[in-house]
Amino acid sequence: MSLQILVLAALDGIAYGALVFLVAVGMTLVFGVMRILNVAHGSFYALGAYAAASLGIAMAGMGLSPWLAFPMFIVAAAVVGITVGGLMERFLLQRIYGYEETLQLLVTFAVFMMLENVQRLVWGVQPYFYSDPLRQLGNVNVAGITYTAYQTLFLPLVALAVLFGLRFFLRYTLAGSVIVAVTEDREAATAIGINARRVFFLTFVIGVTLASLGGALASPTTSVLPGMGAEMIVLSFAVAATAGLGQIEGAAIAALLIGLGRSMAVFFAPEFEVVMPYLIMVLVLLIRPEGLFGKTTARKI
């Protein structure tokens, strides 16, 4: 019985951790490259979810196949990333790269407040629900318990794909190498002719796209409603900080840790479910302030 429960809790934890990773990795990437902790990151998660849900409902209304939802998620995320993220980088962040971290943090806080409001103005306050893709993939049976294939298989696979995709991108492609170069030593990179601004733009758009992809992928599993971004920000913070800011592989492990901690809590100590991510974060930071995988100096991505 207890082995069965461990398996169940592990599956739930992995599914949850995968989703959190997708969002947190964008935040940690942006921080790694730009040294900006983007408080509005959770709002992009919410925007991605809203965009995917409303597009999905519209597509269902047109009678299109639910399978089309999967490419649509990527499109929706990219659209949010390029338009909202691109505009924010181009017209706001570019003005403040020289500023102190605190002010940069506050600029993103201001964007967070505005986007929270804009969401309500655009989408209203009623929850949206779009679960066709979830049902499309059907169920799987593990240890006599029904799971959705979407959550137990699809989301972790996407998370893995993003993880390895990012690794590959940063290590083996030119654009990725340029990003790494700027991260390691901006002056030297600029000296050899790399356009740091363009790198920042690219990184930020990728980061925002990942957040909204997380939102888009979450939309079939949850009600899309106002305030969903504010919670996700703190959770992403917790993952990014537990891992060490800027650590991509670390974020995957931290997300898994937090996901497992949470689902174990549901089975064994339900009262601790909510506190779990923050407890993990506080404990890790107290012992290793730079995070589990962070390096004290010269942080890399």
């Binding site: 403040i96 600029v107 407040m113 505005m114 409001n117 103005l121």
Partner: peptide, 20 residues
């Protein structure tokens, strides 16, 4: 109406960018 967050956010941006 329901725009107090938007107002405050814009205000914060304005202060940081133009009157730090």
């Amino acid at each position: 109406g329901d725009t107090w967050q938007l107002t405050l956010g814009l205000m914060l941006l304005g202060i940081i960018l133009f009157a730090p």
